[in-house]
Design a protein around this nucleic acid. Structure first.
Length: 516
RNA sequence: GGCCCCGUCGUCUAGUGGCCUAGGACACUGGCCUUUCACGCCGGCAACACGGGUCCGAAUCCCGUCGGGGUCACCA
């Protein structure tokens, strides 16, 4: 029975790199009929754990990464918050102390710092001298008499090597000598992450520890602890991390400004901001950032597209397969095929996956996804009237793959705006309207006469008009578009006219003609 | 700096000694379609970090170099 876990800290946001780690853990559990556990690493007691956790939980749920045990669902091994498990950790510390695998250390931070600096000066690797180690009551009494306070440190071995068989890394060796006597319990009695991690993984019966590569170097101390505690060693798999676009550095939420210098990244952000602004969502740099999952949710990306893209960031099935459904990923995923090298996040490729997945959707589904954006933007009633629904349906169909993200419906606001509300792109107006004025006046009559007022009829009407006038279609079609939509780009003009209907089309042309 | 990890087109990757004059995808780019935009179609550019071995034969194995990253907290 495979049991995996994802252990986020309540930071207030779900990092895209975290998603990949969670996904791989989830996939592994789901494909084997095992369990995926969510544990909250909140040992550095913050104020608003619940508040800082909610976006993470929401993000995971939105992505379809559900957990069998953890916050909000409970489970037989709870609590699943590290802050509520301190007695478990203290008991483990006691056992480590009793077994001689850890010791109380009374060195002050300054004394420690001095040792570190001395080692650096002499250009030798630092290793704590254990000068203030206390293993007997007498020693403790003496140090405490000096007013010192104790932390608990691991008493790491000084010889031999640890051999780790990592599912993605292969065989990795560490010399015990180069490991530090890490602190596992602070002077105030609270425990540190590594200890908590080992205890929890054991308590929750985690069989496979799948986590980011940055934890590889931390593994020896964890193995030391779990062996000292008599726990079985889980199977480890250290994933390459998700890197910045065009670099090998770890992707970081705080470096958005730097990423914005990357053209593709800037494009993605700009596209997102436009949509977010239209629906009244705050677009400040901190809360609205493509490194965070919430960004995609806000803009209307498909969770299955993000899942698909993330799965391929460091994993592949073969030389061809690109598009996977959730179910296919569950069936095909394997840690053996996870890459070792970091994979950098490519906004354009994500968008390509989004596009593909969105175009797979049936019209009805697209409609459901798109309507909330129009509602939030105040372009349709909530819920939309039957007439509005009709227009949305036609617009989505006519837009075709121009809508890649649900929020892209806002590219076509003019269907839902009154003539007065519709914004005019002055540059487009200046470019196409003046020289086509006369033609536009004449073409108006074709629109009056067209029967029925649908795209094929209108197209025929325009071609007849063009033939009769002896002009090129370009001399009239752009003017019509600008007059009717206010823009120079968009979906097919005839579709646009048909969706707008005769009355509104004529009204807008009239309006354009009457502009000073 | 010590220790550990990593190194195939710009990016994600296929590749486990001959099928590789290195395949696919995204991006870029030329053309077609369309007098918008998007899609689609056809074509192009573009990589085994470097140097030594081993071998009849190396992107694939070994050694070294270089480069990148991670980690060395009373953070997680």
């Amino acid at each position: 029975m495979i049991r995996t876990r994802f252990a986020p800290s309540p930071t207030g946001y779900l990092h895209i790199g975290g998603v990949r780690t969670a996904l791989f853990n989830w996939l592994l559990a789901r494909q084997s009929g095992g369990q995926f556990i969510l544990r909250i690493d909140d040992t550095d007691q913050q104020r608003n754990v619940e508040e800082a956790l909610q976006p993470i939980l929401d993000g995971l749920r939105w992505l379809g990464i559900d957990w069998d045990e953890g916050p909000e669902v409970g489970g037989p091994f709870g609590p699943y918050y590290q802050s509520q498990r301190s007695d478990r950790y203290r008991a483990a510390v006691e056992r480590l102390l009793d077994g001689g695998h850890a010791y109380r250390d009374y060195a002050t931070p300054d004394e420690l710092k001095a040792e570190r600096e001395a080692a650096e000066r002499e250009k030798r690797p630092f290793r704590y001298s254990r000068r203030f180690m206390a293993e007997t009551p007498e020693q403790r009494a003496r140090f405490e008499g000096e007013g010192r306070q104790a932390v608990v440190r691991l008493k790491m071995p000084t010889e031999g090597t640890l051999v780790l068989d990592d599912l993605v890394r292969g065989r990795v060796e560490f010399a015990w000598l180069s490991e530090q006597d890490h602190v596992i319990q602070r002077a105030d009695g609270t425990c540190l992450y590594h200890l908590a991690n080992v205890v929890d993984d054991h308590d929750f019966q985690i069989t496979h520890v799948v986590r980011a590569e940055e934890h590889l170097s931390n593994t020896p101390r964890q193995v030391f602890m779990l062996e000292a505690l008599g726990y079985p060693r889980p199977t480890y798999a250290h994933l390459p991390f998700v890197a910045e676009p065009g670099s090998r550095n770890k992707l970081s939420k705080r470096k958005l400004d730097k990423y914005l210098k990357n053209r593709d990244f800037a494009q993605l952000v700009e596209h997102g901001r436009k949509i977010a602004a239209a629906i009244g969502h705050a677009v400040d740099a901190d809360g609205f950032n493509p490194v965070i999952v919430d960004f995609y949710k806000t803009v209307g990306y498909l969770p299955e597209a993000i899942i698909n893209y993330m799965a391929l960031l460091g994993w592949s099935l073969d030389d061809k397969a690109e598009h996977f459904s959730r179910q296919e990923l569950i069936e095909k995923f394997s840690l053996e095929r996870v890459n070792k090298a970091p994979a950098s996040f490519d906004p354009q490729k994500l968008m390509a996956f989004e596009d593909w997945h969105f175009q797979q959707l049936p019209a009805q589904r697209k409609l459901e996804l798109v309507v909330p954006f129009l509602e939030k933007a105040g372009l349709v009633a909530s819920p939309p009237t039957p007439d509005q629904r009709q227009i949305v349906e036609e617009a989505v169909a006519a837009a075709g793959d121009r809508i890649k993200v649900a929020g892209d419906i806002l590219l076509f606001p003019y269907f839902f705006q009154s003539d007065e509300q519709m914004a005019l792109d002055e540059k487009a107006v200046a470019k196409y309207l003046p020289q086509s004025r006369e033609l536009l006046v004449k073409f108006r009559d074709c629109l009056v006469a067209a029967e029925p007022f649908d795209a094929p009829t209108l197209e025929r009407a325009m071609h007849d008009f063009v033939d009769a006038e002896g002009i090129k279609i370009g001399q009239i079609i752009h003017a019509v578009r600008v007059a009717v939509t206010g823009q120079s780009v968009g979906m097919g003009v005839f579709d646009t006219l048909a969706i707008l209907g005769r009355r509104r089309s004529l009204g807008r042309i009239e309006r354009a003609l009457n502009r000073p």
